[in-house]
């Protein structure tokens, strides 16, 4: 039961990662691409982390997975802000 639920969560997370990648390829400029990467991949990682934490079973492993999610979430928002700022300042030739 718990395994099935965890597997469903991981599969849903993978769908969001695919969506983020499709957005990265299809969206017209760097800023729109950042939207796809930060939002879709962020939720994808959260779902996969939740699924893995359910499958892992022990509290220590779940805590480590939660830490991974937490630091990636902060880093992803900060990175997208930095990339957007760099692109806005006319770092010429960024597609």
């Amino acid at each position: 039961m718990l395994e099935g639920f965890g597997a469903i969560l991981i599969a849903m997370g993978a769908v969001f990662f695919v969506a983020g990648t499709v957005g990265l390829l299809r969206f017209p400029d760097i800023f729109c691409r950042l939207h796809a990467l930060t939002k879709a991949d962020g939720l994808g990682l959260a779902l996969i982390a939740l699924g893995v934490a359910l499958l892992a079973g022990t509290a220590g492993a779940a805590f480590r997975v939660a830490l991974v999610w937490f630091f990636v979430a902060i880093a992803s928002a900060t990175c997208s802000h930095l990339i957007a700022r760099y692109a806005r300042h006319g770092a010429g030739g960024v597609p």
Partner: peptide, 14 residues
């Protein structure tokens, strides 16, 4: 909100 944001951008991507 993070689910809303991700679903919105995923829908646009597809």
């Amino acid at each position: 909100q993070s689910v809303r944001g991700a679903v919105d951008v995923a829908r646009r991507a597809f």
